[in-house]
């Protein structure tokens, strides 16, 4: 072994890998492959559970919230729309508006404040216009995504389109 490496040295400037070094490298490569082989199934196992509950809910495209009479003027109502919270507001001019109720700042659920006539987030005080969903004060960077409201047979029906 020693002889060979000396010959190598004379013909080539590249240092040959010793037996000990080589075995260490082999051990390292095998250990890493083992770790990868063990961790990949664990990762797949852990990441596969959440799909079925949310996929069924996220397919929801329309929700009947309540009767018109249950939502007086200048009030709002939070409800579940698929897998996310949503809010419907009976504005002072009598019109209805609905939005996804997830604050665009840090994901808290917003509510309607009748005293301020604003959509308000209790976490950091972000405010949105109840007619358009536009962010009007506080930290939210974007408006709330709007939903479509229809009144069918005296019921408030909220849908995506």
């Amino acid at each position: 072994m020693e002889k060979v490496s000396k010959e190598w040295k004379t013909t080539d400037s590249i240092q040959p890998v010793g037996r000990k070094q080589f075995l260490k490298m082999v051990l390292g490569v095998f250990s890493l492959s083992w770790a990868g082989m063990a961790l990949y199934p664990v990762y797949r196992y852990l990441s596969s559970g959440n799909s079925d509950a949310t996929s069924a809910e996220s397919n929801v495209s329309s929700v009947t919230v309540c009767k018109v009479a249950e939502l007086p003027v200048n009030t709002g109502k939070n409800f579940q729309f698929g897998s996310s919270p949503a809010i419907v507001i009976h504005a002072q001019d009598g019109s209805f508006h609905a939005f996804k109720a997830v604050c665009t700042h840090l994901g808290c659920t917003v509510q309607y404040r009748s005293d301020k006539s604003l959509i308000w987030c209790a976490c950091h005080g972000g405010c949105y216009n109840p007619d358009t969903g536009k962010n009007v004060s506080g930290p939210p960077p974007k408006p709330l995504p709007a939903l479509v409201v229809k009144v069918e047979n005296d019921s408030i029906v909220v849908s995506i389109t």
């Binding site: 199934p41 664990v42 797949r44 196992y45 990441s47 596969s48 559970g49 079925d52």
Partner: peptide, 9 residues
Amino acid sequence: TRIDFGWFV
């Protein structure tokens, strides 16, 4: 049946 590698674990 439905979790990836669940049968294996």
